[in-house]
Design a protein around this nucleic acid. Structure first.
Length: 415
RNA sequence: GUGGGCGUAGCUCAGCUGGUAGAGCUCCUGGUUGUGGUCCAGGCGGUCGGGGGUUCGAGUCCCCUCGCUCACCCCA
């Protein structure tokens, strides 16, 4: 390894070409979510550690081993945000948004941080676009939320998408089911993998995801949460499904769908793309009706999702991003004309043109080459006879007064 | 944290059984004493990831280490 400093593991520079593709994502999100009444919010990049410990759940991998936690100068424990829902809920409480018309619909596009081993589609600093709709338990809100994500993924051309859907019930149902599942797992403990056995207390639901053959056999006969939903929860789920059906969305009900954060209740969903590698989830979310209360606010329902920018782009057809337009490149035949060129380039920009000036001391030949590379439509060459304005496509050129360059280009632009 | 693969110029790569480094592309200059896209010539650019060992000699062999990458785990 060379002695040069590199970007830390799991981080990367967003270079100009990539930044242009991201701008497409941001524009699509702003358009689609804005049309549905969502307004942008941005929360701090770091928060009190306690927010995530309480909000995300102490037993989750995120809290147990993936947080970037540090002390600031006064000894406060802070953590780089590993996800977006808890911070937005914190902001909802802190700013008294329960006094606004409900639901409060918010979206964000921010970076998040998790200390994990990087691989394709998984970075230590990653970007997500996400929504949170807080203050209503209406199943229409769940369905609308899912449809919005589907629209965004569709607009971006994300390939080979699949939507999985389930319901976790209310916290009470979930707790009762959890006890039932734990009892079942304990009864078959000897056939379970060591890892799953060790998680019976902390996260029994995850047993459904195990690859271990003995565990899989046991899970074939395990009780399913979907079968234990109360009448209200079952009805809520049925209404979400009916609305999605009506919207023409294809999905698969997967009773084993488990999301890795503790705050989910009732509806949960995840979009995956088979065009991706092992990290196939492009976006997912669900309802978190108990979270606001958990964080010290009034009992308030909410639903939201997050989608990974890097993963959406990986799974999307490479969309050609248009080259930036350059109206004018100002070249000069000798250094004594540089000051005049500087002024013309500046004035051209004030007149609304995209204008660039030779800035590297190239030979005239090199300057024309540069103008060609950046796709300039006109080049103004300043010299003894005045300004030679050359139209690059045709190669035609005319000599004008230096003060007439901008007028000439402006006229040509409308042709 | 655990495995597999890979580390030679900015990029893509070559370098045979060890003899001390090359090509293409890019960039700059010149051919055209003031003019692009083609062509020709030249130039810039590498302690061959790092350290140690074997050897008269290591980019080539051995050991260690760091990094990148894919996967496990988990998620966006």
């Amino acid at each position: 390894m060379s002695a040069n400093v590199r970007a830390p593991r799991g981080t990367h520079d967003v270079l100009p070409d990539d930044a242009a593709r991201r701008a497409v994502v941001e524009d699509a999100a702003a358009r689609i979510l804005g049309a549905a009444g969502y307004r942008r919010i941005e929360t701090p990049a770091f928060e009190a550690t306690e927010l995530f410990a309480r909000g995300v759940g102490a037993s989750t991998d995120i809290v147990q081993k993936e947080m970037y936690t540090f002390e600031d100068g006064s000894g406060r424990s802070l953590t780089l945000r590993p996800e977006g829902t808890a911070p937005v809920c914190r902001a909802y409480i802190e700013h008294g948004m329960q006094k606004l018309p409900q639901p409060v619909k918010l979206w964000y596009l921010s970076s998040f941080f998790r200390y994990e081993r990087a691989q394709a589609g998984r970075q230590r600093q990653f970007w997500q676009v996400g929504t949170e709709a807080i203050g209503s338990a209406d199943p229409a809100l769940d369905a609308e939320s899912i449809v919005l994500l589907a629209d965004l993924l569709d607009a971006l051309g994300v390939r080979e998408l699949r939507l999985r859907l389930s319901s976790l019930g209310t916290p009470e149902t979930r707790a009762a089911y959890r006890a039932e599942l734990q009892a079942y797992l304990r009864a078959h403990a000897e056939r379970l993998s060591e890892e799953v056995r060790g998680r019976i207390d902390s996260n029994p639901l995850r047993a459904f995801d195990a690859d271990h053959s003995g565990t899989r056999e046991v899970m074939q006969g395990a009780p399913l949460l979907l079968d234990r939903l109360t009448g209200e929860d079952a009805e809520h789920f049925a209404q979400v499904r009916a609305l999605l059906d009506e919207a023409g969305l294809t999905y698969e009900v997967d009773p084993t769908l488990v999301r890795g954060l503790d705050y989910y209740a009732r509806t949960v969903f995840e979009f995956t793309s088979d065009a991706l590698g092992a990290q196939s989830g492009v976006g997912g979310g669900g309802r978190y009706d108990g979270l606001i209360e958990q964080l010290g606010g009034p009992a308030t329902p909410g639903v939201g999702w997050a989608a990974g920018i890097e993963r959406m782009l990986l799974a999307a057809d490479a969309q050609a991003v248009g080259e930036p337009v350059v109206d004018l490149f100002v070249a000069y035949a000798g250094a004594e004309h540089r000051a005049a060129g500087f002024q013309i380039a500046h004035e051209a920009r004030r007149a609304g043109l995209a204008a660039q000036l030779e800035l590297a001391g190239r030979s005239l030949k090199g300057q024309l080459k540069q103008a060609d590379r950046i796709g300039a439509r006109y080049v103004a060459i300043l010299g003894e006879e005045g300004a030679t304005v050359k139209e690059m496509d045709s190669g035609e050129q005319v000599v004008v007064e230096p003060g007439g360059v901008i007028h000439h280009v402006l006229r040509g632009r409308t042709l």
